[in-house]
Simulated assay, not measured.
Amino acid sequence: MMRDPLSKKVTGLAPSGIRKFFDLVSEMPEAISLGVGEPDFDTPWRIREEGIYALEQGKTFYTSNAGLKELKEEIGRYLRRKINVDYDPASEIVVTVGGSEGIDIALRAMLDPGDEVLIPQPSYVSYLPCTVLADGKPIVIPLKQENEFKLTAEELEESITPRTKILVLPYPNNPTGAIMTKEDLEPVAKVVKEHDIFVLSDEIYSELTYGTAHASIASLPGMKERTLVINGFSKGFAMTGWRLGYICGPRAIAEQMVKIHQYAIMCAPTNSQYAAVEALKNCESEVERMRVAYNQRRRYLVHEFRRMKLDCFEPFGAFYIFPNIKEFGMSSEAFATRFLEEEKVAVVPGSAFGECGEGFLRVSYAYSLEDLKEAIGRLGDFVGRLRNIR
Rank of each mutant, 00 (worst) to 15 (best):
residue 10 V to S: 08
residue 10 V to N: 04
residue 14 A to E: 13
residue 15 P to A: 11
residue 21 F to Q: 10
residue 21 F to L: 11
residue 25 V to S: 07
residue 26 S to D: 15
residue 28 M to P: 01
residue 28 M to E: 09
residue 29 P to C: 11
residue 33 S to Q: 06
residue 36 V to W: 14
residue 37 G to L: 10
residue 38 E to Q: 09
residue 39 P to F: 06
residue 39 P to L: 08
residue 42 D to N: 12
residue 45 W to A: 10
residue 48 R to H: 05
residue 49 E to Q: 15
residue 52 I to T: 10
residue 52 I to H: 09
residue 56 E to H: 01
residue 57 Q to Y: 00
residue 58 G to L: 13
residue 60 T to R: 11
residue 61 F to V: 07
residue 61 F to N: 11
residue 62 Y to C: 04
residue 62 Y to R: 01
residue 64 S to N: 10
residue 65 N to E: 03
residue 65 N to L: 02
residue 65 N to T: 14
residue 65 N to M: 01
residue 67 G to D: 07
residue 67 G to E: 10
residue 68 L to Q: 07
residue 69 K to L: 14
residue 71 L to H: 11
residue 71 L to F: 12
residue 73 E to G: 09
residue 74 E to S: 12
residue 78 Y to F: 15
residue 78 Y to P: 01
residue 78 Y to R: 05
residue 80 R to Q: 14
residue 82 K to C: 00
residue 82 K to P: 00
residue 82 K to D: 08
residue 84 N to V: 02
residue 85 V to W: 05
residue 85 V to S: 06
residue 86 D to V: 12
residue 88 D to A: 14
residue 89 P to W: 08
residue 90 A to L: 12
residue 91 S to M: 00
residue 91 S to H: 06
residue 92 E to D: 10
residue 92 E to T: 07
residue 94 V to M: 04
residue 95 V to R: 03
residue 96 T to V: 09
residue 97 V to G: 02
residue 97 V to M: 02
residue 97 V to F: 02
residue 98 G to V: 05
residue 98 G to M: 00
residue 98 G to F: 03
residue 99 G to M: 02
residue 99 G to L: 02
residue 100 S to C: 00
residue 101 E to N: 04
residue 102 G to N: 03
residue 102 G to L: 01
residue 104 D to Y: 09
residue 105 I to R: 01
residue 110 M to C: 05
residue 110 M to E: 09
residue 110 M to G: 02
residue 111 L to W: 08
residue 112 D to M: 12
residue 113 P to R: 10
residue 114 G to F: 08
residue 115 D to H: 13
residue 116 E to V: 13
residue 119 I to N: 13
